[in-house]
Design a protein around this nucleic acid. Structure first.
Length: 763
DNA sequence: GTTCTAGAAC
DNA sequence: GTTCTAGAAC
């Protein structure tokens, strides 16, 4: 990293001065104008702010006016802020091309939570564009639905994604310090928060991401030199052939490298953040003293073999040191073999801190384990076990007690592990490589024929394990759910599943279905084939002493209060005040704390059927009976209140034991609906429509479950128009008035039950 | 599942 | 000051 400190002559200065166009991207209320004002107050660079709200002198400004104004500022050698929403590619296109090759175009994306933007726009007064008060909320929500995050391929030299106020402050500081002759490094900066599509309470969210390494130092230490900041930022870049030389004087336009590791956003299309990514260390070349030349050949050979099979998934070879010889060798050989650089990369960094410190989200990491699968020993193994906490050790013990060279074992990482929560790692693949170190067990005494064979097997095991994690059935994800309900979906999205959900799904599988040990000589098969079908929980219960005590399923123990429904189902005649209908198979009762004008539950009377997780093919008839009973009661209510609309469904992870179907009117007009959890349990993928569950059981013999608490903390959105609201009271005020049509996904047959129309019953 | 309540947000 | 959330206890 070097800074040119010499004072240039006037001619050189003219030559070196390169105006910048910074396109702000963000909804109303995201802070674009504030951003510009902050920078323009402090910066020594001449800036002009082109704002569509003010450019029309009181009238609504136009894009053309903005373009002309920006062009004239650039001509005068000034840098320009384009202060308009610029939320989609088309809106940005003309501004990106405005200055030609002489001008660097940056995007600063203020991708703050919808509810924060809404709340700011609603509250502000004296807004330049007069977008404030009640109408602002609708405008912000509508605009955010069109949001399309910028990509380097649009022509940006640099993109900075800010997802919270700390990120914004870092960006402000960076532009504040950007003198007339300075340039900023090219590339995509800013890490996507893995849980950003579940907007938590804003302060909680900020606390979670406001790490000292980012906002703290940069925001509070203005004297921190720009060179240092850029150096820090470059450390977070993927190591590529050019990035290492990025400096103040040499902005590097490394579009490919930047983009392949860019961190996307929930609002974008399929973002690369969601690309399943495996980070793996070089196996056996450290403590096991395997020849580096030979090892690098094998890595490249195996990577070449597997990138073709892995679809969109990516592989990243990681080493701690910039001086890593293995990384350099592999990089050179991979380039020689033309391995697709969007599928395979090398990366300098700590494998346990790839996301938090490297900005590289890897869902799966491989560990160069020892044969006992124990922590310690130094190197990657010690580091991974230490970072993952006791959770990994326990989870590993459940899978296997030892490994033979060349073999791997997949360990789903419990969500309690910091590696899971902080880094987004869902699985660790332990692998044991060949040993050439006489001081370690199973030394091969320089037998490289056998050594190479085992090392090949080890990499095959890692990559096959990774593939088996990635290859799980497609299903409804949170992301595609949002796309569908916001009307942005196409038929394909309908069946998409984000890799995170794939991982979550596969984790559930692992929990239920036991160990998956992958060996290099095994045939590569989808996970579900390899593991066969589930064993019934009830069978497991027979061997589980706790099950009697808890009287519940293997996966959950139920407190006393949580067994209230169960007691009613078993002895309905004792609860005549609550129960409104009893049949051989089901019991119907009004929900004790209804969350809408009409809210009842249809409960199965079967034993050993606590929740959806217990449902199997043999329960199909029961599910249909419950659905029919629910429909019957919905229709009964509709005959009395024809404006009501009903939805029938199950909670993915109910609080109360005993399988029960909710029949709930969609007004959600109830004093008992008090918190986010209440709302989201009926208005997120946590609520599984009865008809969908039946279809899944028909097709797969069980319901697909994502027992994912994240759904319950998703931001509050209207179930009709999908607008975001800052709190429950505001949401309730909104839904009491909102008459927008229901999202298309709910209008599909069988999801909503309405009053009779001339066409018959609309479901 | 609810209730209670500390403390954050406003 | 009041409103609201979220976690603990039940």
């Amino acid at each position: 990293m070097e800074v040119d400190c010499e004072t240039p002559t006037k001619g050189e200065e003219e030559e070196k001065r390169k105006p910048i166009v910074v396109i702000l991207v963000g909804a109303p209320g995201s802070g674009k104008s504030t951003f510009c004002n902050h920078v323009m107050r402090v910066s020594t660079r001449p800036w002009v702010r082109v704002c569509q709200d003010t450019i029309g002198n009181g009238k609504a400004g136009t894009k053309t006016q903005c373009l002309m104004s920006a062009a004239s500022a650039l001509k005068a050698g000034k840098s320009v802020f384009i202060d308009r929403c610029n939320l989609d590619r088309e809106q940005r296109l003309d501004f990106v091309n405005i200055g030609g090759p002489q001008v660097d175009v940056h995007a600063v994306v203020l991708d703050l939570p919808a509810k924060l933007c809404v709340s700011r726009s609603v509250k502000r007064t004296g807004h330049e564009g007069n977008l404030q008060g009640g109408k602002a909320a609708a405008v912000v929500n509508r605009m955010l639905q069109k949001k399309e995050l910028p990509k380097l391929s649009e022509g940006f030299a640099r993109i900075m994604l800010c997802q919270n106020e700390s990120d914004v402050q870092v960006a402000i500081n960076m532009y504040n310090a950007l003198g007339p002759l300075d340039t900023l490094p090219s590339g995509y900066f800013g890490q996507k928060n893995p849980a950003a599509n579940i907007q938590l309470g804003i302060m909680k969210f900020l606390k979670k991401v406001d790490g000292p390494s980012r906002a703290g130092s940069d925001a509070n230490v203005p004297q921190d030199s720009i060179a240092n900041r850029i150096s820090k930022e470059n450390d977070r870049l993927p190591e590529g052939p050019d990035n290492g030389s990025a400096s103040l004087g040499h902005a590097v336009n490394n579009v490919t490298d930047g983009e392949e590791l860019e961190m996307g956003s929930p609002g974008g299309t399929v973002s690369s953040c969601n690309v399943p990514t495996l980070a793996f260390p070089s196996i056996s070349t450290a403590d096991f003293q395997f020849n580096i030349e030979k090892a690098s050949d094998i890595i490249v050979e195996k990577v070449e073999e597997f990138v073709k099979k892995l679809g969109d998934a990516r592989l990243v070879l990681v080493d701690l040191s910039h001086k890593s010889k293995i990384l350099t060798l592999v990089r050179i050989k991979a380039t020689q073999k033309n391995i697709d650089s969007s599928k395979f990369h090398t990366f300098v960094g700590d494998i346990t801190r790839l996301s938090s410190e490297g900005g590289l989200r890897c869902n799966v990491i491989a560990n160069a384990a020892n044969w006992r699968l124990k922590p310690g020993g130094g190197g990657v193994n010690a580091s991974i076990f230490s970072a993952a906490g006791a959770a990994l050790e326990t989870a590993t013990k459940e899978r296997a007690v030892s490994l033979t060279p060349g073999k791997a074992v997949i360990v789903p990482l419990p969500s309690t592990s910091p590696l899971f929560s902080r880094e987004g790692v869902t699985h660790v693949i332990h692998v044991l490589g060949p040993n050439m170190n006489p001081q370690r067990p199973n030394c091969l005494s320089n037998d490289y024929i056998k050594g190479c064979e085992i090392l090949r097997e080890a990499y095959s095991s890692i990559f096959e394990s990774f593939a088996s994690i990635v290859r799980t059935p497609k299903n409804l994800s949170m992301e595609s759910y949002e796309k569908q309900v916001s009307g942005l979906s196409d038929s394909q999205n309908h069946f998409e599943i984000s890799p995170m959900d794939q991982f979550l799904n596969s984790e559930l599988k692992f929990k239920r279905e036991g160990v998956h040990e992958s060996g290099g000589n095994k045939k590569w098969k989808p996970l579900q084939d390899e593991l066969g079908s589930n064993s019934r929980n009830s069978k497991n219960r027979e061997n589980n002493p706790n099950s009697e005590k808890n009287g519940g399923s293997m996966t959950k123990s139920w407190g006393f209060w949580a067994q209230a429904l169960y007691r009613i189902a078993m002895f309905p005649e004792r609860h005549k005040n609550d129960v409104i209908e009893i049949s051989d198979d089901v019991v119907v009762l009004n929900d004790l704390y209804p969350k809408a004008q009409k809210h009842l539950v249809v409960m199965a009377r079967a034993e050993d059927l606590d929740c959806l997780a217990d449902v199997r093919e043999e329960h199909l008839q029961l599910l249909r009976t419950m659905n029919t009973m629910g429909l019957k009661w919905a229709e009964k209510f509709l005959s009395e209140h024809e404006t009501l609309v009903f939805r029938l469904g199950y909670h993915t992870a109910p609080s109360m034991r005993q399988l029960h179907l909710h029949v709930i009117s969609q007004d959600f007009d109830s004093v008992h609906l008090k918190n986010k959890r209440h709302w989201n349990s009926f208005n997120s993928p946590f609520f599984r429509d009865s008809i969908d569950v039946i279809e899944e059981v028909v097709k797969h013999g069980k319901a697909t479950l994502k027992d994912d608490d994240r759904f319950l903390s998703m931001e509050l959105r209207c179930h009709r128009c999908r607008s975001a609201h800052p709190n429950i009271p505001r949401l309730k005020t909104h839904i009491s008035k909102c008459r927008a049509p229901f999202p298309a996904v709910l209008l599909q047959p069988g999801h909503l039950v309405c009053a009779r129309t001339s066409d018959g019953l609309v479901q």
